[in-house]
Design a protein around this nucleic acid. Structure first.
Length: 561
RNA sequence: GCCCCGUUCGUCUAGCGGUCAGGACGCGGCCCUCUCAAGGCUGAAGCAGGAGUUCAAUUCUCCUACGGGGCACCA
């Protein structure tokens, strides 16, 4: 077997295809098979849904298959709870995979942790072919190396220290139990050209590309190996993924070549962005699909909005059509029309679009949807338990339960209670300033993100620990948390509320509180609004008094009778 | 620091050499109206900058700037 040559990849690239802007994405004769491959390491992400929606639409458009694969090779961070949440949320937004861990399929298993043997075999194959090698370098050496390269203003990459070790000797050391990884032997000269479906050819100098770790010392593959092997074995024809993967595509190309396989078509989608244009993040946006579901967003509206990111449809007059069903989207999807500027996930526009969908529903349908939303939520009994003793009529359930469901808590002037100790009237009370209060919330968020099981006891322990660190009275700190979570200074017991609220909603609220406290103009708008309302009320009162005598005078009877 | 990608109103976008640079969100005004929404009309708001190529550049090329991403035994 010949090792992969630079040329074998370069020749795969189209000859200078520009300027042919709307070069269609090639669709081979074989049936289209696409996939999304989320890793179950946290809340189901809106970005996963975004990429999934485009993948699925592409498959449907071409009569192909859409596959869900779970990339759980990171043993430390992957959880089964997260995996289940991903299934729920992706289904909610309208994704229905033809093959996947929970629905089966001919190319399984679809969970990478169950495919370890496959990856090991493939790594062995590369080892025998000499396109991969064992590396025994300890982590400390690699850290030092990276630091040095960074200091010398070079691209940080493995220096090939173990690259020329004798293969048999390496195998013996590994067999003797010495810890090692398997690395890809990248060519050190030449260029690799990635033929991106949206960007055209993108070239990389091979000497800039790292000898990527393929197999970790725990025997599991890294993303790169697993991804290539699985995409091949699962017959993936088009890899439609986020732009953050573009730079690792040359590695993947070399892996395909090393195995002697044809590479699929690559299409790198733009990344969803925060308002400040950085990659969308949970710190700056509600990125959890669970959050949107619980907040009562219609999934078809969310799907619609996501499909608007980077894409547009036109009506006969040349205006943009912004509201459309997923079926309509599938009907005219042309990936090459995707615009590459990173679209900002604009909450305001989502709100407007969602309003369109809401208003379009027949009242009967709306009623049904509200009932279904409440019923599907699954927390009603738990919420009921918390608010029951506070109820005066069934109707008052609406008032007390609101914080558990509503997405948009308007804190109004209660926002001041986000400042730890602000509500305490004792002169001796410890009051935290805005930055310190913010740090408190940051701490809580960090702690709660790390809680493996979302149960009251664990939550209480973490929140109390964070409260302890503030130096303020525990009750004052907890009041701040209460206001962040419920929007008011009164609520059912805090830790139970936190538990029932659920991870997605709770963390979003706490992050929002931190963000609010991070703003130097904290509270000023609310204050201004309150002041002007007060002023208006006073003015009305004054006017009423002034007019009173006149109004009190008996008015003249109508002249005509 | 190095590599890669991107750049049309604040935001989502149309545009594929000749357009009054179109639509939408948001914002302002007016109308409708018992309030608030919704709806209708309307206004302000954009081709990042500089060199080329061309009779003609928002559109093609290059440079700069800015934004983003990547550079892990994470995906």
């Amino acid at each position: 077997m010949t090792p992969p040559s630079t040329r074998s990849c370069a020749t795969r690239a189209p000859t200078r295809a520009l300027p042919e802007p709307a070069m269609p994405i090639p669709v081979p004769r074989e049936p289209v098979r696409v996939r999304i491959a989320p890793s179950p390491t946290g809340d189901p992400h809106v970005g996963t849904a975004y990429i999934g929606l485009f993948n699925q639409a592409f498959a449907r458009r071409h009569g192909g298959k859409f596959i869900l694969r779970i990339e759980d090779t990171d043993q430390k961070r992957s959880t089964r709870a997260s995996e289940d949440a991903i299934y729920r949320s992706l289904r909610w937004v309208g994704l229905q995979w033809d093959e996947g861990p929970d629905v089966g399929g001919a190319c399984g298993p679809y969970r990478q942790s169950e495919r370890a043997a496959i990856y090991r075999e493939h790594a062995d194959l590369l080892l025998t072919r000499g396109t991969a090698y064992r590396c025994f370098c300890p982590a400390e050496r690699l850290d030092r190396l990276r630091a040095e390269q960074r200091a010398a203003k070079q691209t940080a990459r493995y220096d090939g220290h173990c690259r020329n070790l004798d293969t048999a000797a390496g195998a013996a050391r590994a067999a003797a139990g010495e810890s090692c990884v398997v690395r890809l032997a990248m060519p050190t000269t030449g260029t690799t050209v990635v033929a991106d479906g949206l960007r055209g050819p993108v070239s990389y100098e091979n000497n800039q590309i790292d000898d990527q770790v393929l197999l970790k010392s725990d025997g599991l593959p890294t993303y790169h190996l697993a991804n290539v092997v699985d995409d091949r074995l699962m017959g993936i024809t088009h890899v439609i993924r986020a732009e953050e993967w573009l730079n690792s595509t040359p590695k993947h190309l070399h892996l395909y070549a090393a195995f002697g396989w044809d590479a699929p078509v690559f299409v790198h989608m733009p990344l969803l962005r925060n308002a400040d244009k950085s990659k969308i993040s949970k710190r700056k946006n509600p990125t959890s699909l669970e959050y949107w579901q619980r907040a009562g967003v219609l999934p078809e509206a969310m799907a619609n909005f996501l499909c608007l990111m980077g894409y547009s449809r036109k009506d006969a007059d040349g205006g943009d059509v912004e509201q459309f069903t997923y079926a309509e989207f599938v009907g005219d999807l042309a990936l090459e029309r995707i615009s590459l500027g990173g679209p900002v996930f604009d909450l305001k526009k989502l709100e407007w679009l969602h309003g369109l969908w809401l208003r379009k529903l027949a009242p009967e349908e709306l009623a049904l949807r509200v009932q279904a939303w409440l019923a599907e939520d699954g927390r009603n009994v738990a919420v009921g338990r918390l608010v029951q003793e506070r109820l005066t009529q069934l109707g008052s359930w609406l008032d007390h339960a609101r914080p558990f469901y509503a997405a948009d808590l308007d804190l109004g002037l209660h926002a001041r209670l986000l400042l730890v100790g602000a509500g305490n009237r004792k002169a001796t009370a410890v009051r935290l300033g805005r930055p310190a209060s913010r740090a408190f919330f940051d701490d809580i968020v960090a702690r709660l993100e790390g809680v493996p099981d979302w149960d009251s006891a664990a939550l209480e322990a973490e929140v109390r620990a964070a409260a302890e660190l503030t130096g303020a009275a525990t009750g004052d700190a907890l009041m701040a948390v209460r206001v962040a979570l419920s929007g008011r200074p009164t609520s059912p017991p805090l830790f139970d509320s936190l538990h029932v609220l659920g991870r997605g909603l709770a963390l979003q609220r706490l992050r929002r509180a931190a963000a609010l406290l991070g703003d130097p103009r904290f509270l000023q708008d609310a204050l201004a609004a309150a002041r002007s309302e007060l002023a208006a009320a006073e003015a009305a009162l004054a006017a009423a008094d002034a007019v009173a005598p006149a109004a009190a005078r008996p008015t003249a009877p109508p002249a005509e009778t």
